[in-house]
Design a binder for these strands. Structure first.
Length: 827
RNA sequence: GCGGGAGUGGCGGAAUUGGCAGACGCGCUGGAUUUAGGAUCCAGUGUCGAAAGACGUAGGGGUUCAAGUCCCCUCUCCCGCACCA
């Protein structure tokens, strides 16, 4: 044994794996992010990450999202807030069921295994979650309250069943909500969606269309504009008029909705949606009945994708009926066509080919007249281009000579006289179809009785638990697998006691996620969905973080539920999420990662290669959080190098804990306070990458101070290094904790408190003033920040380089912006 | 088609209210130290130019003492919606 140098027991090298081993158990014990103490004096703050679907282990996308959410949660904890940062699992859904079919096991087994895996990964990833609040939507203790909410809505007429042509995914063998059809394809499996006539449960979200639209004013500037705009377009409010048309040999008048009632005199035909009840009624018994039925069949066969090709030729069938134009008594031939949608407006339109492109296309295909009623430069009948702009009305009786807006007011006034029309508003938004013909979801708590009809399951019988998947054939076959669970399906009617059957459909999983942020308040509450007093304390969510993929679906539904709860008197706010941050996606070599593309980067590999902190830092430093990250463009190795460099500082601090920093080197102190202040502003403005850059600048400054400045014993070096540890604790918790310990502190650095910025140290001794001649920089002056304009002007004009570049020219004007800029404008 | 967003070095990206373009990092070049290094430290790095200097934020025009930033036109890319009357 050598009797040479005694080495320190501490590791000399930066070793992420060892730090992870060392600090995880310590944090488990200290649980610094528990938020449930009712006597906690800190003000509450609710930071929420969108909860994951347990599809396997965490991937790179999760790593980015949770790294960013953690910066926010950890920042507010450092600022002295009682931060509630919960996590749970959105655990119902098709992937579990499909995996179960493939492996021949219960979806619950697969789901809970994945949850355990993800939970372990999150712990290692050092997410600042409050582990006391975990929930899984597939637990009966959770979905019981889905059923309760559904029944509350049912009682209020917000949940109802109707028979209608619905979006059908032929692969998943289930219906889809409008919002789940993306470009005519199934959101999940990308199959082409078809239509199917089915009786299904809907939620009356359209009743809330106006509030969903208007309340977005509160979110302006707090949610990304893009998301607000997408929601606005999705709700799609339009204003116009309802106009009544008599139809020959038809008892009731038919109402049409139009945004251009001013063009009523230009109507030359009339179209009803081929798949509407009205069309069937008008065709029935008429000379075109067979032709109509044949056409209808043909349309039903076609998918949404086919229908979406806007340039395909117009088709239709003349029904041998006429609609009477209420303004001039003209007889307009009535057609059935698929270019009119059955579920928008009234499913019938007046066709004005001169001023609507679709009507014009149809008119040209069927050789129908085109009548111009708004003057324009070109003739639509000749050009094939409808003119939709404002203009002077012609051929329009009382509207002649008026512009669009006056004509609209005038015609509505005229129609109102004998109640043939009125102004009207329409929304693009449709009611939310929530029935699904699959097993792994919340059973709909309704019993169908042959004599009583729909009967809600009594509240004291909730939850209606899913029957075991054992023995059930989960293979998708167009109707719910629950129908085969005989013991479960057959029940006595709660009302008459007779034999009855349960509803066998399950709920869309978006129902589950529409209120989970409320359940986190009190995830094991067995007497109510959530405690309204807790809601009062914590909600609305201060900061929501998640992907933009949910810009419409989830966020719209959650807003809708919140408004329903408001109306029920359960909450006092109408918007659930105060602020929203949409993080970008992680890509590889320019495209989304996928196995089939062969560009999949495994998170677990990255964590082994670089350590948790380096991966988190890479995610945060890559760019603004909203932007996509291309993993090929960033450098986790560089991140690790920086962390090691920062970490080494802690070993070079030789002053004792608690030393008075005010006695330290002032230049370094100024850098420290400026960087802390700038990092703080950057975090609050979501510019986390800039906050990291400021931390790097501070590390560089400390390194320099130790090596070639005031030295490691100066109290300012300790102050700066402690600031580095705290700033790093938002992004690189292990490194920060290890630094904190090496600096002589007890854990946890996460709750050490954000460094207090001394404003006096933010004032610079001198500033560099730029002197320009004709906008070009000619000189720089070091001046006092308090210098006055006159003095600065004198100094600038006296600069030799200024005199040289003026070259004898006179001075027109001098712009002085003390203390930073002087611009001399020559003649 | 309609609506929205974005174009800054070799790369990722900085740049309150118009006020030094390129912070911070990656990469690269050179040096120091080292038996060695995918370690560490130092210096350099927009383009042209020996330098002075000139040019430079997709392209063109404009407003201004001053434009990456504001206005108009063009081009390119990305996203959302898509027969919504």
């Amino acid at each position: 044994m050598s009797d040479a140098v005694v080495t320190s027991a501490e590791p000399i090298e930066y070793d992420p794996a060892a730090m992870q081993e060392r600090w995880l158990p310590v944090w488990d014990q200290l649980a610094p992010f528990r938020s449930g103490n009712p006597d906690d004096p800190r003000p509450p703050k609710y930071v929420l990450d969108m909860f994951p679907y347990p599809s396997g282990d965490l991937h790179m996308g999760h790593a980015e999202a949770y790294a960013l959410g953690d910066v926010i949660a950890r920042y507010w904890a450092q600022r002295g807030y009682n931060v509630m940062h919960p996590i749970g699992w959105d655990a119902f859904g098709l992937p579990a069921e499909n995996a179960a079919i493939k492996r021949g096991e219960d979806p619950a087994v697969w789901t809970y295994e994945n949850i355990a895996t993800q939970k372990a990964s999150m712990r290692r990833y050092a997410c600042s979650f409050d582990w006391d609040r975990v929930l899984n939507t597939c637990d009966p203790e959770y979905y019981r309250w889905n059923q309760w909410i559904f029944l509350q809505m049912y009682e209020r007429g917000l949940a109802y069943r109707k028979d209608s042509a619905v979006n059908w995914c032929p692969t998943d063998q289930t219906v889809l909500a409008n919002e789940q059809v993306i470009g005519g394809r199934c959101e999940r499996c990308d199959s082409i969606v078809t239509k199917k006539k089915l009786t299904q449960w809907y939620l009356r979200i359209t009743d809330y269309a106006e509030r969903l639209l208007d309340d977005m004013a509160q979110l302006q500037g707090k949610w990304p504009d893009k998301v607000l705009l997408m929601q606005q377009n999705w709700i799609g409010r339009s204003t116009g008029a309802n106009v009544q048309f008599e139809i020959t040999d038809h008892p009731q008048p038919v109402t049409v909705y139009t945004t251009r009632p001013d063009t009523l005199f230009g109507a030359t035909f009339f179209v009803v949606a081929v798949d509407s009840e009205l069309a069937a009624e008008l065709a029935s018994g008429g000379p075109a009945e067979d032709e109509f039925n044949e056409y209808l069949e043909q349309v039903k066969q076609s998918s949404d994708i086919d229908r979406m090709a806007t340039d395909r030729p117009k088709t239709g069938v003349f029904l041998h009926r006429y609609a009477i134009n209420p303004v001039n008594g003209e007889q307009l031939p009535v057609y059935a066509s698929d270019y009119v949608l059955a579920d928008y407006g009234t499913g019938a339109v007046m066709a004005v080919p001169a001023h609507d492109q679709r009507d014009l296309d149809f008119a040209r295909a069927f050789d129908l007249p085109v009548r111009v009623v708004v003057a324009a430069d070109s003739d639509p009948a000749v050009t094939g281009e409808a003119t939709a702009d404002d203009g002077v009305h012609v051929n329009s009786g009382p509207l002649d000579g008026l512009g669009k807006d006056e004509a609209i007011s005038k015609i509505i006034e005229l129609l109102a006289v004998d109640e043939r029309g009125e102004s009207a508003i329409n929304y693009r938004l449709r009611d939310w179809l929530i029935s699904r013909q699959r097993y792994w979801g919340t059973p709909i708590p309704i019993i169908h009785c042959p004599s009583c009809g729909e009967v809600p399951v009594p509240l004291d019988q909730l939850p209606v638990e899913l029957p075991s998947a054992q023995g059930l054939d989960l293979q998708p076959k167009g109707s719910s697998p629950l129908g085969a669970a005989e013991d479960w399906v057959n029940v006595d009617c709660p009302r008459c006691g007779g034999a009855a059957r349960r509803d066998t459909d399950t709920m869309d999983t978006f129902f589950d996620s529409s209120w989970y942020f409320l359940r986190f308040l009190d995830p094991h509450n067995s007497t109510e969905a959530f405690d309204p007093q807790q809601a009062q304390k914590w909600l609305p969510v201060d900061q929501y973080v998640g992907g933009v993929t949910h810009a419409i679906l989830h966020l719209l539904y959650a807003r809708f539920f919140t408004k329903v709860f408001f109306d029920m008197g359960l909450v006092s706010f109408e918007e659930p999420f105060e602020r929203l941050l949409n993080q970008g996606m992680v890509q590889m070599d320019g495209s989304a990662m996928s196995k089939s593309r062969g560009n999949l980067v495994r998170l677990s590999d990255e964590l082994v290669d670089h350590g948790v902190d380096a991966v988190r830092l890479t995610m945060v430093f890559a760019g603004p959080p909203e932007d996509d990250i291309d993993w090929a463009d960033v450098s986790p190795a560089g991140a690790k190098k920086f962390l090691a460099r920062a970490w080494r500082l802690a070993g070079d601090v030789t002053s004792p804990v608690g030393v008075d920093p005010t006695t330290g080197n002032e230049a370094l102190r100024k850098v420290t306070h400026r960087m802390v202040s700038e990092a703080q502003q950057a975090v609050e403005a979501y510019r986390f990458n800039v906050a990291v850059a400021k931390t790097m600048e501070l590390v560089n400054a400390v390194r320099k101070a130790i090596d070639s400045g005031c030295g490691g014993a100066d109290p300012a070096v300790r102050e700066a290094t402690e600031a580095v540890a705290i700033m790093l604790s938002l992004v690189a918790p292990y490194t920060a904790e290890d630094m904190w310990s090496r600096l002589g502190h007890e854990p946890c650095v996460a709750l050490a408190g954000w460094p207090k910025v001394d404003d006096a140290l933010l004032v610079a001794d001198s500033v560099t003033c730029v002197v320009q001649v004709a906008g070009k920089v000619r000189a720089r002056l070091e001046v006092s920040p308090q210098i006055d304009e006159d003095e600065l002007r004198e100094l600038a004009l006296a600069e030799p380089s200024v005199v040289t570049s003026l070259d004898g020219r006179g001075i027109r004007t001098v712009i002085v912006r003390a203390p930073k800029l002087v611009n001399i404008v020559p003649e």
